[in-house]
Amino acid sequence: MKALLCKQYGLPDTLVLEEVADPQPKADEIVVDVKAAGVNFPDVLIIQNKYQFKPELPFAPGGEMAGIVSAVGENVKHLKAGDRVLGLCTSGAFAEKVRLPAARAIPVPEGVGFDTAAAFLLTYGTSWHALKDRAELRAGETVLVLGASGGVGISAIQIAKALGARVIAAASTEEKLQICRDNGADETINYASEDLRERLKALTGDKGPDIIYDPVGGEYAEPAFRSIGWRGRYLVIGFANGEIPRLPFNLALLKGASIVGVFWGSYTQREPQRFAQDVKDMFALVAEGKLRPHISAHYPLAQGAQALNDMMNRKVTGKVVIEVAA
């Protein structure tokens, strides 16, 4: 099979497309013929050895994919060859075949395409866990989404709206903000040309947002947190900016606010029953048309490095997908 390999840590251009041996399933594993793989910001970090998970070299990046089961291990009873599944794997999805624990594969509902399935679970799962579980979002609350035009940002907008919130989306260009509005944002802030705090005051009647969803970190974290409402919840999703903020703790005291960590990957492993229910609830909303990934581009496997470069250089809106001809 062909795989896009990281053989030395570095930028996406160091990846190479090579022929490697087909994987064989162990007792509790399956092998999936990959049809589509989602591209996510952690993929950019993992090939540079900057992520918390560090697979052994060489490896194919890619943490989520969708395809058709081609082989099952002897202990696997709930899946069989020919089943359509989406799967979570720390790495390995940027290849024609991937081996993963059967417990990390989820049947793809009828009517959901492989590209949609591959672009769904990591971003929507993160945002669902963040907003519904960690923030305990209530209908009528106001949610500020930073970096709102990215994959997790779009998913946060759609989920917050589905749960009855008012959504303020912040991004850096009018083009990106229009995508946010197209996906349900009620109000927008261009933080490249507008003062974030002043705009939030105007949009919230000086009360501030109830929840701040931050996958970016960096320079906008502190002004956003200074604007949070009483009993607000600041959701720490990630640091796409590359800079981990250092927030003054007195701000949390003065606002009675909470800084809430969101580590979805660990949650799926520590609380698998709740995660399974999350998946059912989210796909019910997919069936209702309330959740739908915004896929802005498709790349062939041979151009996987370009997909990661575009992600790294912030040229991506919503999600991008690598299509694999397995």
Rank of each mutant, 00 (worst) to 15 (best):
L11V: 11
L11N: 13
P12E: 05
D13C: 01
T14A: 14
L15C: 02
V20L: 04
D22T: 06
K26D: 12
D33V: 05
N49T: 01
K50P: 08
Y51D: 03
F53L: 15
F53M: 14
L57Q: 10
A60H: 07
L79R: 04
L79S: 02
A81W: 00
D83P: 08
G92E: 07
A95I: 05
A105S: 12
V108A: 08
G111D: 03
A117R: 05
Y124P: 01
G125T: 06
D133E: 13
D133L: 04
G147I: 10
S149V: 04
G151M: 08
A156D: 05
A156Q: 05
I159P: 07
A160W: 03
L163Q: 07
A165T: 01
V167S: 01
Q178V: 04
D182T: 10
G184A: 06
Y191W: 13
S193C: 11
R199G: 09
A202P: 08
G205Y: 07
I212K: 07
Y213W: 00
Y213G: 00
D214H: 09
P215D: 02
G218P: 09
Y220G: 11
R226N: 11
R226E: 12
I228R: 10
R231D: 08
G232T: 10
Y234M: 02
I237S: 09
F239R: 08
G242I: 12
L254N: 13
K255S: 14
K255W: 07
G265P: 03
Y267H: 12
T268P: 04
T268G: 01
R270N: 14
P272C: 08
V279R: 10
F283C: 02
A287N: 09
L291V: 09
I295D: 02
I295A: 08
G304E: 11
A305N: 05
Q306P: 01
D310V: 08
K315P: 06
T317N: 03
G318P: 06
K319G: 05
V321A: 07
A326N: 14
